[in-house]
């Protein structure tokens, strides 16, 4: 059963097509990673899924119900099932509201304010380390970590089944990013959530996601189970992106593929395969024919005329130190 299906999504900003035919499946209880560089459209996909950006084409199906077919009133209810964790959680809190009213906001919006519901939220807040003494504070009186938790509890108070996390570890020191990721994993099991994790941090994506989709210039170029995709990427872009990841392992550094050129503008994508101008393996065919995504959706799939052969997976290595 899928928690969320995005089918053939197209997102436009005026004349610019930022996302061009993206399909995603988020299974219930899993964490799906969405990776890519700036301008690839991953944030636009996230915004469309949480309802902040309209789809120019395509459908969004939430727990079996297609949003585009639902009556207007039902749409709001469906859309609430998906909540967003903002990249800057402190900025996502209304500056002139106390923590108490911020946390009560989802209940008031859904008109489900009751003493029981409020007790549940306070208990949830306390279970992740937000004491009652914080309730009367304003956002600017919170530490970064506290603001992050308040934003998290507020999102969970809307009782979502799907959480979209936009760069949740951006700007976090490595010694505390684990704390957040551990918390998210615990909550996933406890509350039966599914996650869509948008990130450019490949280490984090590699460690905490079950499956991953790689975007380049508004399209998905490859997707599959995380461990398999990291070890046997078929698309040259995936291979280059993964190899560009800075590593402590000197051995892996030597296999680096440094791409030439810059990210082309999505307003004027190259013909044929969008990656052909930077691809070290491009053939004449790549400039003419658009490669289609091959393989079963949800399993391994890639959009490339000349995919890289899978090599036997290297033996897992222990973390340095």
């Amino acid at each position: 059963m899928n928690a969320l299906i995005l089918k053939d999504a197209v997102i436009r900003y005026d004349r610019l097509t930022a996302v061009d035919g993206v399909s995603l499946e988020l299974r219930r209880g899993e964490t799906l990673g969405l990776v890519g560089e700036s301008g690839c459209g991953k944030s636009s996909v996230a915004r469309a899924i949480v309802g902040l950006q309209p789809l120019a084409a395509g459908t969004l199906t939430i727990e079996g119900e297609t949003l585009q077919d639902a009556p207007a009133r039902r749409r709001t209810d469906l859309q609430r099932r998906i909540q967003l964790l903002f990249q800057d959680p402190a900025a996502s809190l209304s500056p002139r509201m106390t923590v108490r009213s911020l946390l009560a906001e989802p209940l008031k919006i859904q008109k489900s304010h009751s003493p029981e519901a409020w007790t549940r939220i306070v208990a949830l807040a306390e279970s992740i380390g937000l004491g009652q003494q914080l309730l009367s504070r304003y956002p600017h009186q919170l530490s970064g970590g506290q603001a992050r938790r308040v934003a998290l509890v507020r999102a969970l108070a809307a009782e979502p089944s799907i959480i979209v996390a936009d760069e949740p570890t951006a700007g976090l020191d490595i010694s505390i990013q684990g704390e957040l990721l551990n918390l998210l994993r615990t909550l996933r099991g406890r509350l039966g959530l599914s996650y869509l994790l948008i990130s450019h941090n490949l280490n984090v994506v590699g460690r905490v996601t079950d499956r991953v989709a790689v975007m380049y210039l508004g399209q998905i170029v490859e997707s599959g189970p995380t461990a398999d995709l990291f070890r046997n990427s078929a698309h040259p872009y995936t291979r280059a992106l993964l190899s560009a990841n800075l590593t402590l392992d000197a051995g892996r550094r030597r296999e680096r593929i440094v791409l030439s050129g810059e990210l082309p503008s999505p307003s004027n994508p190259p013909s044929g395969c969008r990656f052909h101008k930077r691809c070290p393996l491009a053939q004449p065919r790549c400039t003419r024919e658009i490669p289609v995504l091959q393989g079963r959706p949800g399993e391994r799939s890639f959009a490339c005329h000349f995919p890289l052969r899978s090599e036997p997976a290297p033996a897992p290595q222990a973390i340095a130190g």
């Binding site: 490595i174 460690r207 402590l248 392992d249 290297p314 290595q317 222990a318 973390i319 130190g321």
Partner: peptide, 13 residues
């Protein structure tokens, strides 16, 4: 030691 332990190697088992 603690800092290096926080580093994630996505290829490690």
């Amino acid at each position: 030691q603690a800092l290096l332990a926080c580093e994630i190697d996505p290829y490690a088992a």
